[in-house]
Design a protein around this nucleic acid. Structure first.
Lengths: 245, 245
DNA sequence: GCTTCCACTTGATCTCTATCAAAGCATCTG
DNA sequence: CAGATGCTTTGATAGAGATCAAGTGGAAGC
């Protein structure tokens, strides 16, 4: 399927997605090679992109929508171990099979590269390998930050942490008051799976944050954050966590 | 300080530590370059190798002992986000400062490489970059596996998970009965910090596993696992998790 | 317009783990 | 040997979040 927009690889400086990562230094030859092994795939909300253990014959990045990485125990307990927002990379160069399920949480468009040729390109192009290492290190840092959330934060702090992450990546700024506004891309259940909680607890804590005016809610998904600093405090983070407009 | 043993870089096939990773294909020139930027450092148990936020001017790997990566909140809550056993890599090529504290949990010897020259070597040597990416992906998988432990497992399952990880990496096999034997390299408090529990809960669950004969304890640290399959079940893992003698 | 369905909310109760407190037991020190 | 110190165990109690159970509200379908 063809996406409704065009990603301009000939001008990576303006490329809106981090997928420019693989062509960050805009070498024409490499670009051509990348173009030739590139294709797009669309997934509907709820669809599974790939099952844990399956052969994985592509790598790529999320263009639009949100995907998630989840692990499931035999008795059905599930834990989301990663949230893939637009520009995030998917796949493990050098690995045969997927280590966890990848699911489309909303409708998702992915930009994929066939794995074998991508790996070859990576092996012959230090810049791509280097960039990929940096992205993997970023993911590792994010995973470890999340370990602190899962292991030591209260339910209320967990919710605040999740909201601040989404705000950082996905929000727009209200022109009038400077408040931060976004739509929650996750169901309460998906949030619970990400936070190691039950959906009831998620619902209760969101209600509590709303009651205390840390957030404003219109409907069930539309969130306004009047004071980002306040939210960060609620999340247990002192710093602004690198949040910049 | 000089370690009491010699790591033979000229014969990587037999090299007991994964630190061979950086010279895995044994190109003589690279070896020489690595040798010239290599040095050893020793740390006593409890010593901090590097503080979160500090300038980090080396990368390296653990030769002996156990180090840990920890994150701490302002109110003192701490979460261990990684356990570094012998052969594990430390450091972030391309990053200025450390994202978390690195502490020596036991006495530790590290084999370090000066960061700048190591990075240059990495940039000019695809095999090293490639190997480093694979190691980082391994770490990422381990971190995400641990997210499931932190988010969804009970205290008893958490303890069993930790024991099985240590058993996998650090144990010897009892010749008589085929049981798995090791010494716990962590205090109850360190285990608690790794598992997102309190030290009292750790102690209680270890006592319970002992009472149920899932493990045998001599003293406080010496553990015997008569039936590894049983322990894996207690950990909530069905598979053998790749455990091989 | 009515029903159905799904995501969500709210309430009551239970349970697991944290918290507070005391004591055991090695090792080290003088 | 006595006392201190650090790690660990165990007990009593409290509390956060899970579980079980209705019930709400909006969107889709008939």
């Amino acid at each position: 399927m063809t996406p409704t927009f065009k990603i301009d690889h000939t001008n990576c400086a303006d490329c809106p997605i981090r997928h420019r990562a693989v062509c960050a230094h805009c070498d024409a030859d490499e670009l051509e090679e990348l173009e030739s092994i590139k294709y797009y795939r669309s997934f509907e909300a709820g669809q599974t992109v790939i099952w844990s253990g399956d052969q994985m014959n592509f790598v790529g990045s999320v263009v639009s929508g949100i995907a998630s990485l989840t692990q499931t125990m035999e008795d059905g307990r599930t834990q989301m171990v990663g949230l893939l927002l637009p520009s995030d990379f998917v796949g493990r160069p050098g690995r045969e099979s997927a280590p966890y399920d990848v699911q489309a949480t909303t409708d998702v468009v992915m930009c994929c590269f066939r794995k074998k040729p991508f790996e070859e390109l990576m092996n012959t192009t230090p810049h791509i390998a280097h960039r990929l290492l940096q992205m993997t290190l970023d993911e590792l840092d994010a995973a470890r930050e999340w370990m602190l959330v899962l292991g030591r934060k209260t339910a209320r702090e967990k919710i605040a942490s999740l909201l601040s992450i989404i705000a950082r990546r996905d929000a727009s700024i209200n022109q009038k008051g400077g408040a931060i506004v976004f739509d929650l891309p996750l169901t309460r259940e998906a949030m619970a799976d990400y936070l190691g909680l039950t959906l009831e607890t998620v619902s209760r804590q969101i209600s509590a944050l709303k009651k205390d005016e840390v957030i404003l809610l219109e409907g069930k998904r539309h969130v306004t954050i009047p004071d980002m600093g306040r939210l960060m405090e609620e999340a247990g983070d002192d710093s602004d966590g690198g949040f910049l407009v």
